[in-house]
Design a protein around this nucleic acid. Structure first.
Lengths: 201, 201
DNA sequence: CCGGACCCGGGACATTTGTCACGGCCGGGT
DNA sequence: ACCCGGCCGTGACAAATGTCCCGGGTCCGG
């Protein structure tokens, strides 16, 4: 029996996947969590063979949790299951020690098979996505440029960002201007969207 | 046997829900579509008793499709199944003739039961959500203010919006200023997010 | 018929945003 | 030792944005 941990915030999706995987004769779902900051605790308790993690989770990113699992439970293979096939996500997933990267499109049949492959030590990645990740190159933004961009979502003004980051307004504007240049966009919001599409945020 | 049509863009979610509903002894999934503009055709072909529609679909909104179904297949009950419990969505769903409104949080067990209730003519709505929809009141934005807001996502400049709507830049700025005022926000992006949260967009 | 709401546009103005040039400070690599 | 890059800040400037006026038009309900 392959012991599986499932981390996914949408209740219906989580329940459906758990039922599905549980129907496979060789797979058993030993833990389900809806928050990113519950993953490590649950894994230590239930000792899964494979962890199936969403990326966008409340509390803690699935990517960060993957890195935690590599340290805390090294014999647990991590599979990332996410809505968005962003190149930067794939890159970060690999750096965090994940053995596979699935997008929520594509057929359900993929899922159980991916779990089995993961246990056998094979890596499971969509080839087209891998190519995109390679061709996109690494994240060109510096840490502070990322911070500034991330803080400028939902219409925060320069003053808000500066306050949140404990910086001068001038500095924030310089970072944003630089990020806009690097993303080849025309303003903050376009830069945010471009960076998000690449998985840089 | 209850004949169900399933409209959902995420392949894995769609497949999982279909399998799940198919396991119920009294339910049969007779059609699955991944795009909003395929709903009506599929419904005319497969004559479902209940249509389970996501809102955010490529091609055509699930809410618009619900209105279509009311005309084309009046004996088919419509259930809306969506990620976001936005008050405005619920209101529009009811106006489009839906008999129920489910959010993708909450347990999977809800789902089959909701389908059965829908067939019996009962309406299925989360009471807390219904209260929120009532207390929020109707959409205060005019049609053009909505257009301007909707066109200003992903960092479009005023000139872009004006060109896309065949309007003068002054007009666009007036609409946006008005929308900002009505949403009680400080700039475009905050207004967009506020309007989206309410389901006004 | 009149008021009110929506649609569309113009002009003027203050504020915000984005750009550029310029400093200084640190740490790592050659 | 030196340079380079990231970090933090300033000042000045052009462009974009948001606000407040104003005008005109239509349509609908009282």
């Amino acid at each position: 029996m392959i012991r599986v941990l499932l981390a996914e915030d949408q209740g219906m999706m989580r329940g459906a996947l758990a039922l599905l995987l549980g129907m496979e004769p060789d797979i058993e779902v030993v833990a389900q969590v809806g928050r990113g900051d519950e993953i490590v605790d649950a894994a230590l308790l239930s000792r899964p063979d494979v962890a199936l993690l969403d990326i966008e989770l409340p509390g803690r990113s699935g990517l960060d949790a993957a890195a935690d699992l590599r340290d805390e439970t090294p014999d647990c293979r991590v599979l990332i299951l996410t809505t968005f096939g962003r190149p930067g996500y794939l890159r970060r997933a690999m750096e965090a020690g994940a053995v596979g990267f699935l997008v929520k499109d594509g057929p359900v049949e993929e899922l159980a098979e991916a779990v089995r492959k993961a246990l056998r030590g094979e890596t499971v990645i969509d080839p087209a996505l891998a190519a995109a990740a390679l061709s996109a190159g690494p994240n060109p933004l510096t840490a502070r440029e990322r911070d500034a961009l991330a803080a400028s979502v939902d219409g925060a003004t320069i003053a808000d960002i500066a306050a949140g980051l404990h910086l001068s307004e001038s500095t924030v504007r310089n970072y944003l201007s630089s990020a806009i240049g690097k993303t080849g966009t025309r303003n903050r919001m376009e830069a945010v969207r471009a960076a998000r599409r690449q998985g840089w945020l």
